[in-house]
């Protein structure tokens, strides 16, 4: 179970964009977080994935409070999240070919990289694309690689921050299909952040509006 308890966060202590928000993702549950752009939902997603230190509040993973944020979080805690961001161009190191991009979490943890071809196949990337660098592939193909990277360590939670906002309908459906297939097989929980109500309601078990979250 992933619990966000009374989280206040932002980039300026005097004007936090997230104030006293609590949210729970149960084991295997898919929660959609719906809100207008700029409301602070991406900040909350980064707090949930232990990538942003909140000003106040707690993140609790299976009953155990997060011990820190970013590099201060124990490796086991931060690798239990797979994160996918909105803009694939900014989420990919421009120098790494897609195969290296996908293998990066495996290398960082000293694990064998022979899982890469299988990961690539899972997200529908063909072998000829793996040798290319980010500027040589389309947004959709790059986002597929970013999703493969997020799945590489078999995380217990996936945090998808506007994962499909830049993508066409077919790629959106394909990526959501990959996430769901992984969740069925692994029982991972999902926090999907977005502004498309139709998409989130179709995708997730329950959808929470930003307004209800902040007024509660």
């Amino acid at each position: 179970m992933l619990e966000l308890r009374d989280v206040t966060a932002g980039y300026d202590r005097r004007a936090p964009v997230v104030r006293g928000v609590s949210l729970t993702v149960r084991v295997g549950e898919a929660v959609g977080l719906l809100g207008p752009s700029g409301c602070g939902k991406s900040t909350l997603a980064r707090v949930a994935a232990l990538l942003h230190r909140p000003d106040a509040g707690q993140v609790v993973l299976d009953g155990e409070p997060a011990a820190g944020w970013r590099h201060r979080a124990p490796r086991a805690q931060r690798t239990s999240f797979g994160v996918v961001f909105q803009q694939p161009r900014l989420s990919a190191d421009p120098r790494l070919p897609l195969a290296r991009l996908i293998a990066e979490p495996l290398r960082a943890n000293g694990r064998p990289v022979d899982a890469v071809p299988e990961l690539a196949e899972t997200v529908g990337l063909t072998a000829d694309l793996l040798g290319r660098r980010p500027h040589e592939v389309s947004d959709g193909q790059l986002q597929r690689a970013c999703l493969a990277r997020a799945l590489a360590l078999r995380p217990r939670w996936l945090v998808c921050d506007e994962m499909t906002a830049m993508l066409d309908a077919s790629t959106t459906a394909a990526l959501v299909g990959v996430v769901e297939a992984y969740r069925r097989e692994s029982g991972a929980g999902l926090l999907a952040v977005g502004h498309d109500r139709v998409l989130l309601e179709r995708w997730c078990d329950r959808t929470v509006g930003w307004a209800e979250l902040t007024s509660a």
Partner: peptide, 17 residues
């Protein structure tokens, strides 16, 4: 296929790249 990929329709991708 493209139209059917919409979440308000079949939400199924066109296979392949």
């Amino acid at each position: 296929g493209l139209l059917n990929a919409l979440p308000e329709r079949d939400f199924a991708p066109v296979p392949g790249l």
